[in-house]
Amino acid sequence: GATAVSEWTEYKTADGKTYYYNNRTLESTFEKPQELK
């Protein structure tokens, strides 16, 4: 079976905060997504 690849990509803001962006739902969040835990 195919492994589900996380759609979340980790980015940093200009002031160094980490956030996560989902390229399928176009959602962004500062909290670590469930799929990455």
Rank of each mutant, 00 (worst) to 15 (best):
31 E>N: 09
1 G>Q: 13
21 Y>M: 07
20 Y>S: 00
10 E>D: 03
14 A>G: 06
16 G>C: 08
16 G>I: 00
6 S>G: 13
36 L>N: 08
13 T>I: 03
8 W>V: 01
8 W>T: 01
28 S>D: 02
24 R>Y: 12
3 T>R: 12
18 T>F: 07
26 L>M: 15
32 K>S: 04
36 L>F: 10
3 T>N: 14
35 E>Y: 07
23 N>W: 14
30 F>S: 09
29 T>W: 04
7 E>Y: 07
24 R>H: 10
19 Y>S: 03
22 N>I: 00
18 T>W: 05
4 A>N: 13
28 S>F: 15
13 T>Q: 04
21 Y>P: 03
27 E>D: 04
14 A>Y: 03
14 A>L: 09
25 T>L: 03
34 Q>L: 14
31 E>W: 04
7 E>L: 07
10 E>F: 03
27 E>L: 05
34 Q>D: 15
21 Y>K: 08
13 T>Y: 03
27 E>G: 03
7 E>F: 06
6 S>M: 10
14 A>W: 05
28 S>V: 15
31 E>Q: 09
3 T>Q: 13
25 T>H: 01
5 V>P: 11
8 W>M: 00
34 Q>F: 10
13 T>D: 12
10 E>K: 04
30 F>E: 08
25 T>V: 01
16 G>E: 03
10 E>T: 06
4 A>L: 12
30 F>V: 08
3 T>V: 12
37 K>M: 15
17 K>D: 08
35 E>F: 06
30 F>Y: 09
20 Y>Q: 00
6 S>Y: 08
8 W>S: 01
10 E>W: 04
21 Y>A: 02
26 L>C: 15
19 Y>W: 09
28 S>M: 15
20 Y>H: 00
19 Y>L: 09
25 T>W: 02
33 P>Q: 02
27 E>Y: 03
37 K>L: 15
4 A>S: 12
29 T>K: 05
1 G>E: 14
28 S>W: 13
37 K>P: 11
24 R>N: 10
31 E>D: 11
35 E>M: 05
26 L>F: 15
2 A>P: 14
5 V>C: 15
27 E>A: 05
1 G>D: 12
7 E>M: 04
17 K>N: 07
4 A>G: 13
30 F>P: 05
11 Y>N: 06
31 E>L: 08
4 A>D: 12
29 T>L: 04
31 E>Y: 05
23 N>F: 09
15 D>F: 04
13 T>S: 07
8 W>L: 00
14 A>E: 11
25 T>S: 05
7 E>D: 10
1 G>R: 14
5 V>T: 12
14 A>I: 11
14 A>H: 08
20 Y>P: 02
12 K>E: 07
32 K>Y: 05
30 F>R: 04
35 E>I: 06
11 Y>C: 15
37 K>T: 14
24 R>K: 14
6 S>T: 10
32 K>L: 10
35 E>S: 10
6 S>E: 10
17 K>A: 06
21 Y>D: 03
22 N>M: 00
28 S>A: 13
34 Q>H: 11
34 Q>S: 14
6 S>Q: 11
20 Y>N: 00
20 Y>W: 15
15 D>V: 02
26 L>R: 14
35 E>P: 05
2 A>H: 13
14 A>Q: 09
3 T>E: 15
34 Q>I: 14
22 N>E: 01
27 E>H: 04
23 N>V: 11
16 G>Y: 01
21 Y>W: 08
19 Y>G: 05
35 E>V: 06
29 T>M: 05
4 A>W: 05
33 P>A: 02
8 W>D: 01
29 T>G: 03
8 W>F: 01
33 P>F: 02
16 G>M: 01
29 T>H: 05
26 L>H: 15
17 K>F: 07
21 Y>Q: 08
8 W>H: 00
10 E>S: 04
23 N>M: 11
2 A>R: 11
4 A>V: 13
30 F>T: 10
23 N>S: 15
5 V>I: 13
4 A>I: 12
12 K>V: 14
1 G>S: 15
13 T>M: 06
12 K>Y: 09
37 K>R: 13
18 T>P: 07
2 A>F: 09
14 A>T: 09
19 Y>H: 05
7 E>N: 07
2 A>Q: 13
10 E>I: 07
25 T>D: 01
7 E>C: 07
34 Q>T: 11
26 L>Q: 15
2 A>V: 14
32 K>E: 08
33 P>E: 02
32 K>T: 08
26 L>N: 15
26 L>W: 05
27 E>V: 07
8 W>I: 01
21 Y>L: 07
25 T>R: 01
12 K>A: 06
21 Y>E: 08
37 K>F: 15
22 N>W: 00
1 G>L: 13
32 K>V: 11
23 N>K: 10
22 N>S: 02
2 A>K: 12
37 K>G: 15
3 T>S: 14
4 A>F: 06
9 T>W: 07
23 N>E: 14
27 E>R: 04
26 L>D: 10
37 K>W: 14
16 G>F: 01
25 T>Q: 01
17 K>L: 11
28 S>R: 12
21 Y>F: 14
19 Y>R: 04
4 A>T: 13
5 V>L: 14
13 T>G: 08
23 N>C: 15
3 T>K: 12
6 S>L: 09
34 Q>R: 10
31 E>V: 11
29 T>Y: 05
13 T>A: 06
8 W>A: 00
33 P>D: 02
22 N>F: 01
11 Y>F: 12
5 V>H: 12
1 G>Y: 09
4 A>Y: 04
8 W>N: 00
11 Y>L: 15
6 S>P: 11
8 W>R: 01
26 L>S: 11
27 E>Q: 10
16 G>T: 00
20 Y>R: 00
10 E>M: 05
5 V>F: 12
33 P>M: 02
12 K>S: 07
14 A>R: 07
15 D>E: 10
16 G>K: 01
34 Q>W: 10
37 K>H: 12
18 T>V: 11
10 E>C: 12
18 T>L: 09
7 E>W: 07
29 T>E: 02
25 T>K: 01
4 A>E: 13
16 G>A: 01
1 G>I: 14
24 R>T: 12
18 T>I: 14
15 D>K: 04
2 A>Y: 08
32 K>W: 03
23 N>T: 15
33 P>R: 01
19 Y>P: 01
6 S>R: 09
15 D>Q: 04
37 K>A: 15
6 S>K: 09
3 T>Y: 05
9 T>Y: 08
14 A>P: 12
5 V>Y: 11
33 P>K: 02
33 P>I: 03
7 E>S: 04
2 A>E: 13
19 Y>D: 02
32 K>D: 04
11 Y>I: 13
24 R>D: 06
10 E>Q: 06
10 E>R: 03
10 E>L: 04
15 D>S: 07
11 Y>H: 15
29 T>R: 07
31 E>F: 07
8 W>Q: 00
2 A>N: 14
7 E>A: 07
18 T>K: 08
14 A>D: 09
35 E>D: 10
24 R>V: 15
33 P>V: 03
33 P>C: 03
31 E>T: 11
11 Y>A: 08
36 L>P: 07
19 Y>E: 04
23 N>L: 09
14 A>S: 10
24 R>Q: 12
36 L>R: 07
30 F>D: 07
20 Y>T: 00
5 V>Q: 13
4 A>R: 10
20 Y>L: 00
24 R>M: 12
28 S>N: 05
17 K>R: 14
20 Y>M: 00
7 E>R: 04
25 T>E: 01
14 A>N: 09
1 G>W: 09
5 V>G: 12
5 V>M: 13
6 S>A: 10
25 T>N: 02
16 G>S: 02
12 K>F: 08
34 Q>A: 14
36 L>D: 08
5 V>R: 10
5 V>A: 13
16 G>H: 02
